[in-house]
Design a protein around this nucleic acid. Structure first.
Lengths: 271, 271
DNA sequence: TCCAAGCTATTCATCTAGACTATAGATTAT
DNA sequence: ATAATCTATAGTCTAGATGAATAGCTTGGA
């Protein structure tokens, strides 16, 4: 436990869940890695992984240790940089396309310091890949500090001539059997639509609001988009207030967030 | 560098600045400790201490490493507790008598969770002794996150019959040659008085506002106290607005504060 | 059903990092 | 001066880490 090298070994192993491959990556023999992990588990008094057939998976303790190991590695690296007087490691922000494009601009402009922008969300923060995240809250936000940032309503984008454009207020049942431009299956926005909307036809699949809007303008179909999206010429946006508003959040590691991450979080929350 | 045991060794050494004693405390031979520190310095590429005659003192890198080492140790301990499912380590708050007695009550009552209260301030936080501090800003607050909490004015406590009680507004020059109850030499409040007030007589020395007030009530002398102190019966408080207000601050470790520390800080700042 | 592939896990011989003893070198106090 | 108190180095030794060889388990395909 008291060696950072062991912690790193565990991290690599936990990320692959395969002793053989992990040992290669660590330039270590497989038995050496194995005993290392075994001793680590023994010193912590808890098994770190279990076997199901040939498949390994982390125990709860193992998952906690993985988070901890990533944190420690990052902390050590930060310190060594600081000591060498090198420039601070750039801050890594993980967010989605929409948030970058329409929500975060002012905060990013106001932030003085190096930034690395990644696509991602809460999961990127929890895994230590990003120092800060912005997105809609996923299922599991333990280990994360979550601060509500902005509520964004959902609107239906339709051509001015569309029959639905006459109504001031749209109900969900009006949307039955629409030809929709939607994200690919499995994406959060797609899941929300499938859950809340009446049955619809998939006219096209698009990643990101830009492409969605483009398809809509081409006339492939209409789309349900966040209300921050600009309305293209010749189209109107009709609020779907029966659809739950999407809540954007700022995610920080619960313990030991980098100071710059907090600073940027403050900028974002105040923007 | 990659062993936490080495980090602990350095911390003990850095706290004593004596290889022999530190080695004893670590149950290690003196040469073993010496080589450990030497290798640590080599791996970091910087000397960690220097010799002046027989006296050792930390370099800047050494001081940074000391802070880092304390932080890492604390983090590891927190993690091990968490893993063993033990109750969280109680939060240690360092503050002064006055702040405890007159400023922090509501926040401490509102805080749910174990607390350990210590006398101290920013220095306690920087050294890793406390997780959170409240006090007046000292000279060196690098490595600390400082948030202004409350401005407290200075008042002169005098008996109603005292000649100065007739004046509505007191000037500093009115206070020449007063018999004052003051803190012992060297304490911050004493230093401020010596710096700002005209010459005065020391009627008595007292630690803490309670004792100061008691001495004042006994008639040993008058006192300059924070305006949050309750005014005893038969006495009046006259503002000394020429004396700079004392600014109480909340201190957190700049990097990697414990989540509970942030929570309590928020409670304090909002109280 | 049985074998081959792909792992995990153990054993044992080997090797190295790190601990200790002994002692030199340096500085201050008496 | 000399003793006392440290830091620092040299050399030796050992516990523990490492790796080669291999046993044992599980899965998928012939």
């Amino acid at each position: 436990m008291n060696s950072l090298e062991t912690l790193r070994s565990f991290r690599i192993f936990a990320e692959t869940l395969n002793f053989t491959h992990a040992a290669e990556e660590l330039h270590l023999s497989q038995p050496a890695l194995h005993t290392k992990i075994r001793e680590l588990a023994r010193s912590l008094g808890q098994p770190l992984y279990l076997k199901q057939g040939r498949q390994l998976h982390l125990t709860e303790a193992g998952q906690k240790l993985l988070v901890f190991a990533r944190e420690m590695e990052a902390r050590v690296q930060d310190f060594q940089r600081q000591l060498r007087g090198e420039s601070e490691q750039p801050l890594r922000l993980a967010s989605g396309q929409g948030a970058y494009r329409y929500l975060l601009g002012p905060a990013l402009k106001a932030y003085r310091g190096q930034l690395e922008l990644r696509l991602g969300g809460a999961e990127s923060v929890r895994s230590g890949l990003a120092h800060l995240g912005v997105g809609v809250a996923p299922a599991d936000i333990s280990e994360l500090e979550v601060q509500p940032f902005r509520e964004v309503g959902q609107v239906l984008l339709i051509p001015k001539q569309h029959p639905l454009a006459r109504k001031r207020r749209l109900r969900l049942r009006d949307c039955r059997d629409l030809q929709l431009v939607v994200p690919p299956p499995g994406r959060p926005q797609r899941l929300r639509l499938e859950e809340c909307l009446p049955p619809f036809q998939v006219a096209a699949e698009a990643e990101g609001w830009e492409l969605t809007l483009y398809f809509v303008v081409l006339g492939l179909g209409v789309a349900v988009v966040n209300s921050f999206c600009p309305v293209p010429k010749g189209f109107v946006a009709r609020e779907l207030d029966e659809l739950p508003a999407v809540s954007y959040q700022v995610f920080l590691p619960k313990a030991y967030a980098r100071p710059q991450a907090r600073q940027l979080a403050r900028l974002i929350l105040n923007s």
